[in-house]
Amino acid sequence: MNEKDLVILEQYDLHVQSTRRGRGSFLCDTDRGLVQVTEFSGSQERLFFQNRVLFFLTERGIRCDLLLENTEGNLVTSDRYGNGYVVKKWFSGRECDTKSREDIVGAVHYLARLHNVLRLPEIQEFQMAAAQTDETDTAEEKKIRKNLEYIAEPLDEEIERHTKELKKVRNFMRTRKKKTAFESRFLELYPEFMAQAEEVTRRVCASNSYALHRQCIRERRVCHGDYSQHNLFFDREGAVAVNFARCCFDVQISDFYQFFRKIMEKQGWNQKLGMEMIHAYQEVRPLGDAEFENFCIRLAYPEKFWKLANHYFNSRKTWIPEKSLQKLEILDMQEKKRREFVKFLH
């Protein structure tokens, strides 16, 4: 994206006063406030669903970004080369500080308030799926879910898939005659983490996670989908979430888990902070037994190990960044504290 691409703003009812570069975007001060301009190449249907969620939140007093329509009433605007762009209402606050207890607790409180509100009605295709949930077999339900990109994969299917992918990566590494330092270290750590993965896979299959997922779909519960410090700002009015591109119908505790895990990794799995985050969430949105069990299952799965494996497998194998090996070593160093915390929650 370059300065010339800002001509797309001529297709909006905006008077631009100044512009500056943001993270992969342009930020523009206008007569209607701060807006962000970013490239877009995704699904129009998905974008429409995203903006529906944002309007739903805005109408209920939850601060978030919002996609703006151009003068023709479209959410996507094309430049002279046919490249698509979206323009969003934006905020000038600072990003959530992962070292600040105040920011962390504020982020958790905001997320719990967001979850209390996010039950989105009037989705025709979803109503079809919900109406058939108790009358169709599992295969048919899976077919329905695959046709609806804004319904998330159930936890049991996700964990089973990740476990299979870990085995695939291990098998690939073992065939390589000349192994990198990352590959050698990964294979050393693999038995321990795979044992955990297989145990959690058995545990999730024996749990009521699939029933909980179906219940949340029927109740139209929506998740942010990518709730992290990078997508949460603080300004004078408090917290505001942005970048809802991955919002979907799902078990809402998945949002809290993603934020929780990232913070705990950065804080060395500080047990006191972890419990404070859990209590902060439950102050605003108490968790039932099924959701708490779902949260504990997610925490018990070695997701960070899978993420490193997945990143490796989808990148160039001839050159592996030193940072990947460093992340693997940090993961190993923190593993004891992570297991202790998971055991403490049980």
Rank of each mutant, 00 (worst) to 15 (best):
M128R: 11
V169C: 02
P302C: 09
E265L: 09
L287D: 12
R170N: 11
N116V: 02
I151H: 05
K179D: 14
I320G: 02
E10D: 15
L345N: 07
T175M: 07
E10L: 02
D97F: 03
L67S: 13
V76A: 00
E335I: 04
Q267W: 09
T71D: 14
V222T: 12
M333T: 09
C247W: 06
F49C: 08
R221L: 03
H279R: 11
V342A: 13
N294H: 15
Q258K: 08
D31F: 00
V76T: 12
C216L: 01
E276L: 13
H230F: 14
K336R: 08
Y281T: 04
V37D: 05
E188Q: 14
V87C: 12
L325M: 06
N231S: 04
K323P: 06
L9M: 11
D97C: 03
L57W: 07
I159S: 05
M128T: 15
S315V: 03
N51M: 01
F295K: 01
Q282I: 06
E95I: 14
E283Q: 11
R174Y: 00
G33Y: 04
G22M: 07
D79K: 04
R80F: 11
K178V: 15
E160H: 10
L345F: 10
R23I: 05
V222Y: 06
I320P: 07
L299Q: 12
R338F: 09
M128S: 08
I123N: 07
G274I: 05
E165S: 07
E276P: 06
V105D: 07
P321N: 03
K266E: 15
S207Q: 08
E72I: 06
Q334N: 14
A241G: 09
G22A: 09
S184A: 13
K143V: 15
F56P: 03
E265R: 08
N314Q: 13
H15G: 01
V86E: 07
K179S: 07
E158Y: 03
Q132G: 00
R185L: 05
E219N: 13
D250V: 06
S209D: 02
E158I: 04
A139H: 10
E149R: 01
G84D: 07
E149C: 04
D31S: 10
I151Y: 05
G288N: 15
Q229R: 10
L118Y: 08
K99N: 14
L155A: 13
I217G: 00
E276A: 13
A195E: 15
Y12W: 04
R176E: 13
G288I: 02
G106D: 09
I151F: 12
R203L: 09
K343S: 02
N243R: 00
P191R: 02
H15P: 00
Q271S: 13
D13C: 02
M275R: 14
